[in-house]
Structure formats: structure tokens, C-alpha cells
Amino acid sequence: MPNDTEVAELWLAFKKGDKGAFGSLATVFYKTLYNYGTKLTTDYTLVEDCIQDLFLEMWKRREFLGETEHVRFYLLKALRRKLFLEKKTSDKRLHQFIENTDDIDFIGEFSIESRIIELETTEQHLKKLNQVLTQLSKREREVIYLKFYQELDYEQIASLMAINYQSARNLIYNALKGLKSAWQHDG
């Protein structure tokens, strides 16, 4: 992964019509976008198609795009929006009489199995932890994902999920508080 300055340089070159830079940006961010997209829908082909469309639209509109130092944030937000619009049209088609949801559901799940050894903890402890993890709401899971996997700041998370700064922060702190209690449970 190139650092922020390198990404910003790629972005500038891409805006000037440098196709090599465009290809590099796509390569650098494809996995990131795929990772997020597949946590918003189980239709993985749709995720691929949306990423493809997203980059092609960017190329078409490159001269009109702003200069940004937050390329990752820009791309994640655009993908989320795209997937949401797709969901909305397909919901409408399948359930014309059912009210539209006004947001997309985060379906990513936690999996502590792979880190059980590192956690050095007891059976009962893990049970409690698993319980807390499954009880997290979709929004709590999404803020945690965006904060710890995508390393976005609160302001970006708030903008991406269309909530305010304080809500984003509260969602994270509440979720962490629950997790912390799992650790305290049996001391």
C-alpha cells in the first residue's frame, strides 16, 4: 500500500488523464473496496460491477473531480452510495408495496476463531465475548469496521453513514464498552 502522499500524487496524475496512474489507483484500492462492498451485500458480482462502474465514471468525469487527500474515503463513500441505490431499485422491483429502507445494512461479521490463541483466554470468557460481538447492532459493526479496518476518522465515518460526528463517536464507544465488559466478566 503506498502512503498518503503517493496516493495523492497518483490522484493528481489521474485527474490530468494519466491512465497509468488510473490503473494504479484501481489496483491499490480494488481489494479495499471489495472488502467493504462484500460486507454490504451478499451479491459479490454486484460488488464487482459497482466497483467497475465507479472507476469508469471517475475516469469519464476526472476533470471535474475535486482534489482530495482522502481518496480512500472518497471511494468508500461512492461505493456505499452505489450499492445503496442498487438495493433501492431492486427492493422497489421485488416489493412494490413494502416500504423502502432508507439505508443499506452492514452484514459483516466478527470471527474470533483465528485469534483465540492470541487472546489467551478461557472458554467461558470466549462465550461471553462471542455473545457481546453478536449483540452489536449493524451500525455499531459498521463504525467499528470503518474505524479499525479502513482507519477513517470520526468525521469521515459520520459523513459516510450520514450521521453526525457525535453519533459516530458514541456508536464506537458504546460498542467498545460492551466488549470491555466481556473481559472484566470473570476478572
Partner: peptide
């Protein structure tokens, strides 16, 4: 402990597929 517990499931994608898509 909490940081380590935040492990998530990911849908894998290969490098070959990414370069194909690009």
C-alpha cells in the same frame, strides 16, 4: 484484548482477479 477481539470475516479475492478486473 478488545483490539484483538475485533477480527472480522472477509471475503477473499485473489491478486490475479484484481489485475484482471483492472
Amino acid at each position: 484484548f478488545v483490539l484483538k477481539a475485533l477480527e472480522m470475516k472477509h471475503i477473499p479475492i485473489t491478486d490475479a482477479k484484481v489485475s484482471d478486473k483492472v
